[in-house]
């Protein structure tokens, strides 16, 4: 029983990390139908900037805040200077731009920062919380709680504010949205900025557990993307559920089956789920108009 509980704790820890990364994909997708493959680099930037800010002598909270602000600016710049000028390009071309951006950001990070691994101190210390013979780090709970808070805030924002409704309108039909007076470009600007901020926050919160380095973004983006798709792209609760599910599957297969094949099991299950539920768990089917 204690071992099952430990596997669950591990699943929650890893799953919460994936969930936090996956959340970053949803808002941009909602507003613009773009899968942003540079999302992992936002996560990396949040962590690395905080590390180097702290090394430069800034108090940790200041460094963290600065990292979020700078990453948000990077997100905004990505849209303004790379995605917006390519308006009207095919979805694959837009994805290619974000992939180019991710290579670029990684290339810059290795020059500005370094190529070593870094860590940050946990918010509530490194002593594990013991429960029923299993142990979990307090930071894992922080990550989990943050993911939940972000989901709630996103939901409130999209359902309860005019700006949120404008995002939905932009997503549904850009031309129609513009006709009713929505500044669609600013809306997409905004979605990139917020997604970047979510990524940076994720990066800062997961670094005490997962460590970070200039190239940490690639794998996180991969897992986050898979989580977002499993949950149904565009759905914030879906992203969290997708992330937690993948984390849980990995932990259970590492514990009960084979640690060599835990990633394979996770992707196999994603494949099976998508075959039976082609829109993901919480996604809505798109109807093609002829």
């Amino acid at each position: 029983m204690a071992e099952l509980l430990q596997f669950v704790f591990s699943g929650l820890t890893v799953g919460a990390i994936y969930a936090l990364v996956a959340l970053g994909f949803t808002l941009i997708y909602k507003a613009s139908d773009i899968i942003n493959f540079a999302q992992g680099e936002f996560v990396m930037l949040g962590g690395m900037m905080t590390v180097f800010g702290a090394q430069a002598g800034l108090p940790l909270p200041v460094a963290a805040l600065l990292a979020v602000i700078l990453t948000t600016a990077v997100g905004l710049a990505l849209h303004r200077f790379a995605v917006a000028p390519a308006r009207g390009a095919t979805p694959v071309a837009l994805i290619m731009i974000t992939i180019g951006a991710s290579i670029f950001l990684r290339g810059v990070a290795q020059i500005v920062f370094d190529k070593r691994f870094h860590s940050l101190p946990s918010l509530f210390g490194g002593d594990p919380i013991k429960f029923g013979g299993a142990a979990i780090l307090p930071q894992s709970l922080v990550v989990l709680a943050s993911a939940t808070i972000i989901v709630v805030v996103l939901w409130l924002f999209i359902d309860r504010t005019m700006l949120g409704k404008a995002v939905i309108a932009t997503a549904a039909n850009r031309l129609a949205a513009r006709l009713i007076g929505v500044d669609t470009r600013s809306i997409v600007d905004f979605s990139f900025a917020v997604s970047a901020a979510i990524g940076a926050i994720a990066g800062i919160l997961i670094t005490p557990i997962a460590l970070t380095s200039y190239d940490a973004g690639t794998l996180l983006a991969l897992k986050g993307f898979a989580a977002a798709m499993l949950g149904g792209i565009g759905s914030a609760p879906g992203a969290v559920v997708g992330g937690l599910l993948i984390g849980m599957i990995e932990a259970m297969s590492a514990g009960y089956f084979s640690s060599n094949y835990k990633d394979a099991v996770a992707f196999l299950i994603i494949l099976v789920v998508l075959i039976f539920i082609p829109q993901g768990l919480f996604g809505r089917a798109k109807v093609e108009r002829v």
Partner: peptide, 19 residues
């Protein structure tokens, strides 16, 4: 047991070793 080079938690594998 084994783990991926970028994994962020190895407690399931270590639990099996512990037991």
């Amino acid at each position: 047991e084994s783990y991926g080079p970028r994994d962020s938690d190895m407690t399931p594998q270590l639990t099996n070793i512990k037991n």
